[in-house]
């Protein structure tokens, strides 16, 4: 019983860490622009293909990992330059369409230049090792996932609290125009948000591919959906909310994995969504309300 509980906790925390990072990467941009970046999942895809392409090389895995993260950051910034900046001041619809288009463009590039079939990504040996904790056997990558997420979240919180750029990001999330009127450049804030989004997507991709092992062109859809649902649960505008939403969603998912009988497991997502609907009926704003004010920028 106790070991079941421990197993459940580790499973839920592992999945929750991934979901939390996914959600945070989406909400950091949403919080400032009030726009969902539909090309967000493709950042994860780009990092995955970077790993795959570097796979045959003699580089140490850590170097490949860093390059994958850099590519995700670079793609994040490119998304902003290509899909957001030119049409940002026009209309919401225009941005939604351009970010969709950019997402499709990246997916099709992967289809065309690489392959529609899945490709193995290189992983360090550590990711296939296991350790025994009490009576249960735990993959090391789960512990790596949990630990690196906690580290990353702590670092992120520190940057938001302690640096002027972090303060500017927080200010811009509720008062974008006013932030500009004290001298904070709009483009700096927006590019930074996209770069952070890319960084989070890059880290997620390492941990996510560590779980699933291979990359396909459509890989970005699930992270985008997960991130979206987690942020809806947590409150679309709140960064801590996104993290909490990620962990809550993972707990629900993992809980059903444990509780549902085998023949109902195929319908797990339907059960999960019902719970999500109940949460939203109970708290339409999500678990954490965002900053009180704020207009679309």
């Amino acid at each position: 019983m106790l070991s079941d509980l421990l197993q459940f906790s580790i499973d839920a925390l592992t999945l929750g860490s991934l979901y939390a990072l996914m959600a945070l990467g989406l909400v950091i941009v949403y919080g400032i622009l009030r726009l969902v970046n539909f090309a967000y999942g493709e950042l994860i895809m780009v990092a995955g293909y970077t790993l795959y392409l570097l796979g045959g090389s003699p580089l140490p895995w850590l170097v490949m990992a860093v390059m994958a993260i850099v590519m995700a950051i670079f793609t994040g910034i490119a998304t902003e330059l290509v899909a957001f900046r030119p049409v940002r001041e026009r209309s919401v619809t225009a941005v939604l369409i351009t970010s969709f288009a950019f997402s499709t463009l990246l997916q099709n590039a992967a289809l065309l230049f690489i392959s529609p079939r899945s490709r193995q990504v290189p992983l360090p040996d550590l990711f296939s090792e296991v350790v025994q904790i009490g009576e249960i056997i735990v993959p090391v990558r789960n512990l790596v996932t949990i630990a690196s997420t906690i580290l990353l979240l702590a670092l992120f919180a520190l940057i938001l609290r302690r640096t002027v750029l972090g303060m500017a990001l927080r200010a811009a999330a509720s008062q974008f125009r006013m932030a500009r009127m004290v001298g904070v450049p709009a483009n700096l804030i927006i590019s930074t948000a996209f770069a952070i989004s890319g960084l989070l997507a890059g880290v997620v991709s390492l941990l996510w591919f560590g779980r699933i092992g291979s990359v396909v062109p459509g890989i970005g859809l699930e992270p985008l959906l997960v991130a979206f649902i987690a942020t809806v649960i947590g409150g679309m505008r709140s960064l801590p909310g996104a993290v909490i939403g990620g962990y809550v969603l993972a707990m629900i998912d993992t809980g059903f994995n444990y509780l549902l009988p085998q023949d109902l497991l195929a319908f797990r997502d339907a059960f999960t969504f019902s719970i999500v609907i109940f949460i939203l009926l109970w708290r339409p704003q999500g678990l954490m309300a965002g900053p009180a004010t704020g207009q679309r920028t």
Partner: peptide
């Protein structure tokens, strides 16, 4: 900037 402290508001004023 409602979520920021008074001091942080002033820090950003000096951005």
């Amino acid at each position: 900037f409602a979520d920021l402290t008074v001091k942080e508001n002033l820090r950003l004023g000096a951005y």
